[in-house]
């Protein structure tokens, strides 16, 4: 597991059914591209988040494939329509196989 990885998510606490809400998701990750050389002249192995997904009550909202040129601490902001009260599930997939997950509940206003 890469060091210092911590997801942060911002979802409104409540919304009306059918509302379009803005979701912000950020994960602290060094996103080593695999193109850089270390002090010894050898390539530093690639270590990035390669996939980010968000689901609402199990239904997929967004599924993003990330590539090596994306900067440190990748940040996503997107919109979603909330049909009902429920839970957003977020997952970041690391190159080393670990998956960082977090959840946010949303209530109906």
């Amino acid at each position: 597991m890469a060091k210092g990885v911590k997801p942060r998510v911002k979802v409104p606490k409540k919304a009306a059914a059918g509302d379009v809400i803005t979701i912000k998701a950020l994960i602290s990750h060094k996103m080593e591209s695999g193109q850089r050389k270390g002090k010894d002249g050898n390539l530093i192995p690639r270590s990035i988040i390669n996939r980010f997904t968000c689901a609402f009550n199990g239904e997929n909202v967004i599924d993003v494939q990330l590539e090596p040129a994306i900067s440190t601490n990748p940040y996503f902001q997107f919109e979603a329509i909330v049909p009902e009260a429920g839970e957003f599930q977020f997952a970041w997939h690391d190159d080393d196989g670990s998956v960082y997950e977090t959840k946010k509940k949303i209530k109906m206003a």
Binding site: K6, K24, L26, S28, N73
Partner: peptide
């Protein structure tokens, strides 16, 4: 505070 990139470091400091 979410957009402010400094909070990544504040979170780390909290740990």
């Amino acid at each position: 505070d979410f957009d402010n990139p400094a909070f990544v470091f504040i979170d780390a400091a909290m740990d």
